[in-house]
């Protein structure tokens, strides 16, 4: 049997550069979990609908399940494993602990990576669907946080504390 088509590329994950050759069909999510053994990033729906696989690509939050790994030549990926500085947790991670923002924890790595991206978007002044004045300042209100985090589902329903945690991290 012939091998399925594969491609070679370079990818930096959490600061470590990897020279990789993978089956063209491999998603970034499967690359992270199955090849690089970074299992913090979770597979939920595998269709871009749940957000459990959210990582940062060149600093921007992205669904790893809908990203073909071979398209990422030269890019930098940050996963939940790459957020903390040694034992010092990222402020969003700390806020999730302080506010009890999870139950089972399965969606949490995606929630945290998404929140890191969303807070950066807020800091750049990006409006959202619920922003009344498109040209005004944006504040991390609960309504804004809920809208901006709508790409991350939590079947335990920990939303109330997730919103509080993200607002805390925004301060």
């Amino acid at each position: 049997m012939t091998q399925p088509p594969a491609s070679a590329f370079d990818l930096t994950v959490n600061g470590t550069r990897h020279a990789l050759t993978v089956d063209n069909r491999t998603s970034l999510l499967d690359l992270l979990r199955e090849r690089l053994r970074l299992t913090g990033t979770k597979k939920g729906c595998d269709h871009g609908q749940c957000g459990a696989c959210t990582v940062l690509v060149d600093g921007r939050r992205t669904n790893a399940c809908l990203t073909l790994a071979v398209t990422l030549d030269g890019r930098e990926v940050t996963t939940v494993e790459g957020l903390a500085d040694g034992d010092d947790l990222h402020p969003v991670q700390q806020a999730f602990l302080d506010h009890d923002a999870f139950q089972c924890g399965y969606c949490t790595p995606g929630q945290i990576c998404s929140a890191v991206g969303a807070l950066d978007e807020l800091a750049q002044g990006w409006p959202s669907h619920v922003t009344d004045d498109l040209t005004g300042e944006v504040e991390p209100s609960a309504e804004e946080v809920r809208e901006r985090m709508s790409g991350n589902l939590c079947r335990c329903g920990a939303y109330a504390h997730i919103v509080t945690a993200v607002q805390e991290a925004a301060r």
């Binding site: 939050r61 992205t62 809908l66 990203t67 991206g117 969303a118 669907h129 901006r148 985090m149």
Partner: peptide
């Protein structure tokens, strides 16, 4: 654009 999809999807 802001009414479409999610923050993650709009980034891609």
């Amino acid at each position: 654009l802001l009414a479409a999809a999610s923050g993650q999807l709009r980034n891609r």
